[in-house]
């Protein structure tokens, strides 16, 4: 898949300054994120890694301009995040595929692109996106005829079909079994290499984060903040075998200590 970059598309970096997010309900307010700075280079694969409830999903939505922070600002490329949303430059992949059950894979992929008025209807963008995720053969299937992994690949194709500058992925493989998950990680690495998209990826799986990322931002809770930035220097393209190397293990061990503290080592 990574032959040159045949599907090279637009891509931008993200700059976030002083991000704070406070939810208030019935007088009581909860600070989810506090004075957070983040720089994401154009075309890089960045992961937000942290325990449940540390605000990583919230941060992801703020970085993509879908959620407005109570403090601070986000810029995508040269413009504000809100402008990027208005330009439909944000691709979103969530934990569940959220496909329309009455539409085929191809129609599902085309739906958001059509709504966003990107390109012209039936210009083949949906088919190209399906090809990128390796589902050309399943284009005419309905969601209930797809496996969990295939459905999630359709939802990735749906985001790619919009040719967004930023691809936001919120625990996209969290609901899949371990074997499918490993296969999906390899597929995603291939897609990233082929498209050169900036991908911001949320997970609480350490090995997934190490396998995929250029940079991992380790988060902690109460309030949500970034405690460490780890650069993963493993060679690319990465294959499943990299999981067994000592460098991989070194990264994993370090990240685990960051997340749960050294006392959790057995």
């Amino acid at each position: 898949m990574a032959k040159g970059r045949p599907h090279q598309m637009a891509s931008s970096g993200i700059t976030a300054r002083g991000i704070g997010m406070t939810f208030s309900r019935r007088g009581a307010s909860t600070t989810v994120l506090e004075s957070l700075d983040l720089d994401i280079a154009a075309g890089s694969f960045v992961t937000l890694l942290g325990p449940s409830g540390c605000g990583k999903s919230t941060l992801l939505k703020i970085l993509g301009g879908i959620l407005q922070p109570t403090e601070g600002s986000v810029h995508i490329g040269e413009s504000t995040a809100a402008d990027a949303v208005a330009r439909k430059d944000i691709g979103l992949v969530l934990q569940r595929p959220a496909l329309l059950p009455w539409k085929t894979a191809r129609e599902n992929v085309a739906m958001l692109r059509d709504l966003a008025k990107k390109g012209t209807r039936g210009d083949g963008a949906a088919d190209r996106a399906l090809e990128l995720v390796g589902l050309t053969h399943a284009a005419d299937r309905l969601p209930h005829e797809l496996s969990g992994g295939m459905a999630q690949r359709v939802s990735i194709a749906r985001a790619l079909a919009m040719d967004p500058e930023i691809l936001l992925m919120d625990e996209p493989f969290g609901a899949l079994d371990a074997i499918t998950r490993d296969a999906m990680n390899e597929t995603l690495a291939g897609i990233w290499a082929a498209t050169g998209k900036t991908i911001v990826f949320v997970t609480h799986s350490i090995s997934e984060a190490v396998f995929l990322s250029d940079t991992i931002h380790v988060m902690a809770s109460d309030p949500g903040r970034i405690v460490e930035e780890v650069t993963i220097a493993l060679d690319r393209p990465r294959r499943a075998e990299v999981l067994d190397t000592s460098e991989f293990l070194t990264y994993s061990t370090h990240l685990r200590e960051q997340l749960v503290g050294p006392e959790a080592r057995v």
């Binding site: 879908i66 439909k88 979103l92 934990q95 958001l112 709504l115 749906r158 919009m162």
Partner: peptide, 23 residues
């Protein structure tokens, strides 16, 4: 999740009603 996806492309409430809710 579909609602979030629709919002991410700036869909109107009528579009959400017609494309998602009614079916």
């Amino acid at each position: 999740d579909l609602l979030l996806l629709m919002k991410s492309v700036g869909s109107t409430r009528n579009q959400i009603l017609a494309r998602i809710q009614i079916p």
